[in-house]
Design a protein around this nucleic acid. Structure first.
Lengths: 187, 187
DNA sequence: CGCCGAGTTGAACTGAATCAAGAAACGTGG
DNA sequence: CCACGTTTCTTGATTCAGTTCAACTCGGCG
C-alpha cells in the first residue's frame, strides 16, 4: 500500500489527509496465477492498483482469446468501459502471476472526489497519462509492421517478453502467435 | 458559445459561477477550409471546442499524410499529447470545412481547475468519455476487416462519409484509398 | 476547352493468417 | 527422479486480404 502512495507521489502531491483517506479506502487482495479479477458479463465495480504481479485483459472473439492489454507493478487496472458505464464487461481480467492488488469501489472513489478536490485532480492527471499511452499504442498498431512492433516492445518493455506467454503477446501486438515466433527467431 | 454550455449540460451540471467563468475564458475563432489550427513542431497550448465545421488531425509518414482522427460539431479538440506534455506536436490540425471554434489556454484552464472543483470534475468526466471512444476504436481497428470497419462507420457516422474526402477516411480507417473505394462500390 | 484533383479500376505483389505437424518445456503423481 | 500428459512454441506449406503502382474516368472551374 505504501507503493501506491509512493507511486502517485511521483507525479502529483496530495495532502496528508487525502493520503490517509486513500489509505483507508483501499482493500488489499491477493490472487494466484490464472485466477480471475473479473469475468465477462459482470460489472466491474472497482478500480485496482497492482502492487506486485502481472495480469492481462482479454476477450473472446470467434472462440479465441484475444489479449489486448497487460498490467504490471504500479499499474492502475480495471475494465474501464464497464467501470465507467456500469455495463457488463465484455472482457476478462486474469492473473498471469500471483499478484497483490489494492481495490477501491466506485462509490468510495466518488466520495473521495467529493471530499478531496486533490484526489479528483490526481485521477484527472492519471487519466491524461493513460490516454496518451493508449493513443501511442493506437498509432503504432495502425502503422507499424509486425516486426517493428516486436522490436519496439523488445526495446521498451523487455520484461513483458520474459514474464508473459508468447501467445498473449502476439495478440497484444495484433498478430498470430506463429508470426511472432518467426519474427523472434531471427527476422 | 451557448452550444458549449448546452453541450456540457448534457452530461454534467456545473454551477452558474463556473458557467460564467467558462464563458469568459473561451475565445471565439473562425477558420476557413484548409487553414491550420496547429502545425507540427509547434506546441499546442490550447484546448478547442468545435461549434461548427469539421477538421482533421494528420501526420506525415514517409511523405504521406495519415489522417488519424476527425473533429465535428460539439467535439473538444486539441493535439492531446502536445497539450498535456508541452512537447512539440507531431501532428497537424487542419480544417476540412469553414469552422467556428472556441479556445481556452492551458494556463486559464488550470486557473479554472483551482477555482472550481466543478470544472475539474467536468474535464475528468470528459476524459472518461474520450478514453472509452479511443479504446473502442482501438479494438475495432485491431480486429475487424476493412469491410466491417467501413460498414460500422456507415452505420454509426454516415455524416463523416458525406463531408470528408475519401482519402482522409481511408487512412482514418487504416486502409488504402483504393481498398475503401472498392469496398464502397460493392466488393 | 483543357486542366486538375478526386475517385475508380485492373494486375501484380506481399505480409501475415491459417492450417497442420512436430518439438520443447513444464508440472504432477507415482 | 522418471514417465506421461498438457501446454507452449516452432516450422513448413498454402492462402488471402489488402497494398502498390499505374492507367483511366469524371466533374468542376478558370
Amino acid at each position: 500500500m505504501q507503493n501506491l502512495l509512493k507511486h502517485i507521489a511521483n507525479y502529483y502531491t496530495i495532502s496528508n489527509e487525502a493520503q490517509n483517506a486513500l489509505y483507508n479506502c483501499f482493500e488489499r487482495l491477493e490472487l494466484n496465477r490464472n485466477e480471475y479479477l473479473l469475468q465477462q458479463g459482470n460489472i466491474c465495480r472497482h478500480l485496482y492498483f497492482l502492487e506486485k504481479g502481472a495480469l492481462r485483459g482479454y476477450y473472446l472473439l470467434d472462440g479465441k482469446e484475444v489479449t489486448h492489454w497487460f498490467g504490471f507493478e504500479n499499474d492502475f487496472v480495471t475494465s474501464f468501459h464497464s467501470f465507467i458505464t456500469r455495463q457488463p464487461a465484455v472482457e476478462n481480467i486474469q492473473m498471469i502471476e500471483y499478484s497483490i492488488l489494492y481495490a477501491i469501489s466506485k462509490e468510495k472513489l466518488k466520495q473521495l472526489f467529493n471530499q478531496y478536490h486533490d484526489i479528483e485532480r490526481l485521477v484527472r492527471i492519471t487519466y491524461e497519462k493513460y490516454y496518451i499511452r493508449l493513443e501511442e499504442r493506437f498509432v503504432n498498431a495502425h502503422f507499424k509492421t509486425a516486426k517493428e512492433l516486436y522490436e519496439d516492445l523488445f526495446q521498451h518493455s523487455p520484461h513483458i517478453l520474459e514474464r508473459v506467454p508468447l501467445g498473449y503477446i502476439a495478440s497484444y501486438l495484433g498478430m498470430s502467435q506463429e508470426t511472432l515466433s518467426r519474427i523472434r527467431n531471427k527476422h
